[in-house]
């Protein structure tokens, strides 16, 4: 963690591109790396998976733009994480997540903004900031982000474009 470069809610060693083909596999893959880097606790994995199954986090982006792929915001309670940040995860292949607002509906999801938040009361709401980012960034720019080829490019994009409070 000492060598990580950070800007606002992002760290360059907490950005991922995953070629997994289901949501549990991608969350497990990312969890292991976040654990190694000290961002989450050991029991994070069981809780985030349980939440995702019971209270899914897929977001249908069609109200923002019909041309925008869907995203998801997997997260769990603050007691299982050690920080307050957003972990961007690009999915090489779209993965099915259930819709947060209509849990019985499935969505093809292309990009995850995993939220680690051990201080929900403290500052500007992270989910609101993510939605503002999706609403205010032009669709062609977001499409570019969702298809970048390296985690470093994703980090740079988020550090440059995500409005920080």
């Amino acid at each position: 963690m000492l060598t990580a470069t950070k800007k606002g809610l992002f760290a360059d060693d907490a950005v991922f591109i995953s070629s997994q083909s289901d949501k549990e596999a991608v969350i497990r893959e990312v969890y292991q790396k976040l654990l190694d880097r000290g961002y989450v606790k050991g029991d994070f994995i069981e809780h985030i998976l349980e939440r995702e199954n019971k209270y899914p986090t897929g977001i249908d982006t069609s109200p923002i733009s019909k041309d925008l792929p869907n995203v998801a915001i997997p997260h769990t309670e603050g007691e299982f994480v050690n920080t307050r940040m957003i972990v961007p995860i690009e999915l090489t292949h779209p993965i099915k997540f259930n819709n947060m607002i209509e849990p019985d509906k499935e969505l093809d999801v292309k990009f995850l903004f995993m939220i680690l938040n051990n201080d929900p009361e403290g500052q500007a709401n992270i989910l609101a900031q993510i939605m503002d980012f999706l609403n205010s960034t032009p669709v062609d720019q977001l499409t570019k982000l969702f298809n970048l080829k390296s985690t470093n490019e994703i980090y740079e994009f988020m550090a440059d474009h995500f409005k920080q409070d």
Binding site: R51, K54, Y55, T57, I73, H75, T76, E77, G78, M100, I115, N117, P120, E121, N125, I126, L127, A128
Partner: peptide, 30 residues
């Protein structure tokens, strides 16, 4: 919300602010 962290707090903040703007005395827990 599922984790009581993000969505419920966003709704709390938004509803409290909007109802205040509309002249109502509202408190929302998450």
């Amino acid at each position: 919300c599922g984790a009581g962290v993000n969505s419920s707090h966003q709704i709390k903040d938004a509803v409290e602010a909007e109802m205040k703007k509309r002249g109502h005395n509202v408190k929302c827990d998450a």
